[in-house]
């Protein structure tokens, strides 16, 4: 968001997950959002077939973080040819867990009166960053010290035209919390924590050089090598 906009996590534009030609005329596009701790799958269903579609239902395969529909897919009226509807499906993280490849992959089955259709989509890992992910500063220091060196991964994020405070505020909107900030030799060092819905903590150090749009991020976590997704 720009100046004066409320902060919140980034929501990607919807993309086509199921093209009509692969689903007997049903087109599904969607995206994911986390709003105030509620996870939602925002879907657009379009009927590109010649006949009416009814009896919609949705199911997920088991996945890395136990994402599951928290209720039925609410398509309350039949979908006529050329009609489009938007549906928000609330999700829980209490479904069955199985590590997926890639980690953030979600396999979905949608049925209607015509057939059952399958597609895969990928969610941003920030979907499962919880609101109480700000680690106590002493705990952060102790944890950082205890994490083995080979659990650390380094990334460059290029072309970020924000100063460290603006970046920090923006990241907080996605539940990435800055615990401490220090400036050493012209570099801002931000120490950050993230907590996932399954209780895993991720610790990060972000380095920002004034005037350099490329950030360096060091991430520490002990399980699942999830740094690239984060």
């Amino acid at each position: 968001g720009g100046v004066g906009m409320p902060t919140g996590s980034y929501v990607a534009p919807k993309t086509v997950w199921l093209p009509a030609m692969k689903a007997k005329g049903l087109e599904i596009s969607g995206t994911f959002a986390r709003r105030g701790g509620i996870i939602q799958m925002d879907l657009t269903l379009t009927n590109k077939a010649m006949s009416v579609m009814t009896d919609f239902a949705i199911q997920f395969n088991r996945n890395s973080f136990g994402l599951a529909p928290a209720g039925p897919l609410q398509v309350l009226t039949p979908l006529s040819p050329n009609q489009t509807i938007d549906v928000s499906l609330p999700l829980s993280t209490s479904g069955p867990v199985m590590k997926m490849e890639p980690l953030n992959n979600l396999q979905v089955a949608v049925k209607n009166n015509i057939d059952v259709f399958y597609f895969s989509c990928q969610y941003p890992l920030s979907l499962i960053f919880v609101e109480d992910g700000k680690m106590e500063r002493q705990v952060f220091l102790a944890t950082w010290k205890d994490i083995p060196n080979d659990s650390e991964a380094q990334f460059q994020i290029k072309d970020i035209h924000l100063n460290s405070d603006a970046a920090s505020n923006k990241l907080q909107g996605s539940n990435i919390f800055t615990i401490a900030k220090r400036t050493v030799e012209g570099q801002d060092m931000l120490y950050q924590s993230v907590k996932l819905t399954n209780g895993i903590w991720v610790l990060a150090e972000m380095r920002i050089q004034t005037g350099n749009p490329n950030y360096t991020v060091n991430e520490n976590q002990e399980t699942w090598r999830m740094a690239p997704f984060i």
């Binding site: 500063r137 002493q138 220091l141 950082w144 615990i179 401490a180 220090r182 030799e185 060092m189």
Partner: peptide
């Protein structure tokens, strides 16, 4: 007093990461 210690510990951490 404890807070001072934590503040200092973060300064030392940032320092050590910049000049290992």
């Amino acid at each position: 007093e404890l807070e001072d210690g934590v503040d200092e510990a973060f300064s030392r951490l940032a320092e050590s990461r910049t000049n290992p």
